[in-house]
Design a protein around this nucleic acid. Sequence first.
DNA 1: AGCTTATACAAGCAAATACTAATATGTTTT
DNA 2: AAAACATATTAGTATTTGCTTGTATAAGCT
Lengths: 119, 119
Amino acid sequence: MVEDAIVDGTAEGTAPCCAPPGDVDSDTMATDLQVLTAMGNDTRYELLRRIANADDGVCVCDLEAAVGVSQSAVSQALSRLYTAQLVTRRKEGSWRYYETTETTSALLETLDDLRGTYE
Amino acid sequence: MVEDAIVDGTAEGTAPCCAPPGDVDSDTMATDLQVLTAMGNDTRYELLRRIANADDGVCVCDLEAAVGVSQSAVSQALSRLYTAQLVTRRKEGSWRYYETTETTSALLETLDDLRGTYE
DNA sequence: AGCTTATACAAGCAAATACTAATATGTTTT
DNA sequence: AAAACATATTAGTATTTGCTTGTATAAGCT
């Protein structure tokens, strides 16, 4: 009740140890976070890698066998990847084929470069 | 030493709708996921952006004022970013200065390119 | 039409997460 | 040495997450 806190980084009266950093655009943040949180999960990451490896379209049935979770979990995971625009999907008969998008390739490639152990 | 474990979930007797995708290296997966999950959080993402923007080292005190969480939360967030090797830190007097690593720059740059709206 | 296969959707729940508050540690100043 | 400051650590907790089971939809078979 003595003072209203200064919400900004530029507090006065105290010794300035460095200049306050610039603000972050919230649209950018939202977009990036959707991608990062979509990729940042064991199941979804593995699905992405597997789809990216065999880039000619992979159907859910085979993915299901590969990762260790239920059919429902795979479906939910793929759905989320789709929403985040990390995969595209096309229907063919009763099967759904998933392919990775440019976003996925670019990010996985960057990660590979950073590890330096990509082959 | 046991390394290069492979996550293999290939089952037999599955419907032949397509060829099963290749396996995913589990070390690669662990490394990438540590990075992705570290970045994939509002607070930590914003901290990274802010540190990256002012790349001459930012001290905790200013970051604290910028993001809307407690001092403790900022400290915990930075600690996690450090563990994931997304930032380095140096001590100077009683202040800690954080800087982003190559990993962070590369990933943020990729994200910027993908959005196409980088300014 | 019924049966099976392929995928999606909806609840419910256990586990992980990200905070806050309180306390500890180290550093500078008085 | 004590007080004030900068950051880290611990413990407790509310929220979020990612699964499971069960059910729904839709397409191919018999």
